[in-house]
Every structure is written in structure tokens, then in C-alpha cells.
């Protein structure tokens, strides 16, 4: 694959990319447990005017607010819905790790296919495998 033309540089690039991915995995897999569960800016606005009431059927909205118009998500019963694995408590980390890996593969693959023949001129052109 890669000729020994610029081994140092290639190793350095690979090291940076691996490090970047590890940081993303740590954030999604670990730091996510410490994320605030309060409504975000948009949700706060759409909930303005309503109060959230606990009932037997779960949380319900009372009052007049934009969120009363919100529809349930069509894929709300999916295996990773709401950043939990099969709805299980305490699985935001694994769900986040899956999300990072899926996103990296999807985006990386798409961008790899989209890239022009514009290999940098200082490369020896063998890195495409």
C-alpha cells in the first residue's frame, strides 16, 4: 500500500485521527452520563406555558404551549431511541459509542467517495489503496 516515502508524516496523520476518534468516543461513551437532562433551549421555548405532570401513563403536558403540537417520533420505539439501548436505563454510553462509530463510518465513507481526484500534489498517490 504505502511506500516508505513519508512514513513519519503518515504515522503522524494516523495518530491524530485515532486520537480524534478516541476523544469523540470518550465524550459520547463517558461524559454523556454527566449531561444535563433539563430541556434544551428549543424545548424550553416549546414547553413555555405548559407544566409537566407525572401520571400513570408517564409524563403529560398541561396548559397551552407549542410542544402540545409535537407528534410522537415515528421511530420512537427503535433499538437506540432516546439514546438508550433497548430503552434500558444507564445505557447512554454504549448508545453514544454506537452513534459515534456509525457516524464516523457513514460520514467518512461518504466523504471518501465524494473526494475529487484532488490528492495533494505532494503525495505520491498510493494512499488510495
Amino acid at each position: 500500500m504505502t511506500r516508505p516515502a513519508r512514513p513519519t508524516r503518515d504515522r503522524r496523520a494516523t495518530g491524530f485521527f485515532v486520537g480524534f476518534l478516541v476523544v469523540a468516543l470518550l465524550i459520547a461513551g463517558g461524559l454523556s452520563y454527566f449531561a444535563s437532562s433539563d430541556p434544551d433551549g428549543l424545548d424550553s421555548v416549546t414547553l413555555e406555558g405548559c407544566s409537566v405532570v407525572e401520571t400513570d401513563a408517564g409524563e403529560q403536558l398541561e396548559g397551552t404551549c407549542i410542544a402540545r403540537n409535537a407528534e410522537d417520533h415515528a421511530l420512537g420505539s427503535g433499538p437506540l431511541a432516546d439514546y438508550a439501548v433497548d430503552g434500558a436505563d444507564g445505557t447512554v454510553g454504549p448508545a453514544g459509542v454506537i452513534g459515534v462509530l456509525v457516524t464516523a463510518l457513514l460520514a467518512g465513507g461518504l466523504f471518501w467517495l465524494l473526494r475529487g481526484r484532488g490528492t495533494p500534489p505532494d503525495r505520491d498517490g498510493t494512499s488510495g489503496s
Binding site: V52, Q60, A67, H73
Partner: peptide, 16 residues
């Protein structure tokens, strides 16, 4: 009343 679509740890983050 209307059901609130919220997750356990992370609420919905974008427009529903």
C-alpha cells in the same frame, strides 16, 4: 394532556 417525548438521560434536542 399530551405525552411528553423525553428520554431518560437526554431530552429530544431538535425540532419534533
Amino acid at each position: 394532556t399530551t405525552a411528553v417525548p423525553t428520554g431518560e438521560h437526554i431530552t429530544a434536542m431538535h425540532m419534533s
